[in-house]
Nucleic acid binder design. Structure first.
Length: 274
DNA sequence: CATTACCTGCAA
DNA sequence: TTGCAGGTAATG
């Protein structure tokens, strides 16, 4: 799925295009199972006539603040996209939700794999979603000291720990592999065994890979689209992700693909010793 | 911890 | 045909 940089890009794109517009209603919905709460009828009734006040990101959720204390929350999971299209844009078989705006344009939610999820939340629901997630890695609250506290005493391997949204919100498979390579840390090392100096390097690497990707509009491959329907971000290049068998750009050793916590994992064994 | 489930498309 | 894909929750 889109990870933090891609979701951030989508949220910004939606904000730029839809802030101040009113959702007149649900124009298309062919996969109601993706709506987790409320039920379909409640969703249709609750969203109609609401003005979009702001669009932001929390973890990998796109959050549209609506008039009346409600929030439209969308998770793109593996293959979802959220795009504002002109009135004449066709609805294809992978488009599962279309929201009509008061100026004739529409917000399309497209999702090949149907893993994406949509919620219409009140204040309590939004608070619960927020509480479910850990620190935002690009926020002021994510200091090296805070990161050190997260690692302290944990026997979990560092990669699965970084993927745990309840600890740090927004990292996914790509950027974890990239950050670990930058910091020269093997993904299977126990978190508590990562030394202070290494943890500081990893903290910096996490912020750098995320920030750089946001600057470039998110990485683009497979199903990812920004809020304008563009692939964008082709400039983002990865050091190890999906480069198994290729030489490491730092040491020349061969990048290896392995499986860690059931996720494809890419590592330079020479740069990132166990 | 690992496995399974949720879905579909695509490359090997 | 098999395995793999940016995610996450539920279940041994």
């Amino acid at each position: 799925m889109p990870e933090l940089p891609e979701v951030e890009t989508v949220a910004r794109d939606l904000a730029a295009q839809a802030n101040g517009r009113t959702i007149t209603g649900v124009e298309w919905l062919d996969w109601p199972r993706m709506i987790e709460t409320p039920d379909e009828a409640g969703f249709r009734a609750g969203i109609a006539g609401r003005k979009i006040l702001a669009v932001a990101r929390r973890a990998k959720w796109v959050l549209a603040t609506l008039e009346g204390g409600l929030t439209l929350a969308v998770h793109l999971r593996m293959s979802g996209s959220l795009v504002v299209y002109p009135a004449d844009h066709p609805i294809d078989p992978y488009t599962h939700l279309v929201l009509a705006l008061d100026d004739g344009r529409r917000i399309f939610f497209r999702d090949v794999r149907k893993f994406g999820r949509v919620r219409l939340l009140d204040a309590a629901g939004l608070a619960a979603l927020d509480a479910h997630h850990g620190v935002e890695p690009l926020s002021d609250g994510f200091t090296p000291a805070v990161f050190a506290r997260i690692l302290a005493g944990k026997s979990t391997r560092i990669k699965p720990l970084l993927l745990d949204q309840a600890l740090i919100a927004g990292l996914g498979n790509i950027y974890v592999d990239e950050a670990l390579w930058h910091a020269k840390i093997h993904p299977e090392r126990p978190a508590a065994a990562v030394q202070a100096k290494e943890a500081k390097a990893l903290h910096g690497a996490i912020q750098e890979v995320l920030t750089k990707s946001i600057t470039l509009g998110g990485s683009s491959f497979r199903d990812y689209r920004n809020g304008y329907g563009q692939q964008g971000g082709n400039q983002v290049s990865f050091a190890v992700y999906q480069r198994g068998g290729e030489p490491c750009q730092r040491c020349g050793g061969l990048i290896e693909r392995m499986v860690v916590a059931q996720r494809g994992t890419h590592v330079c064994p020479k740069c990132q010793p166990r």
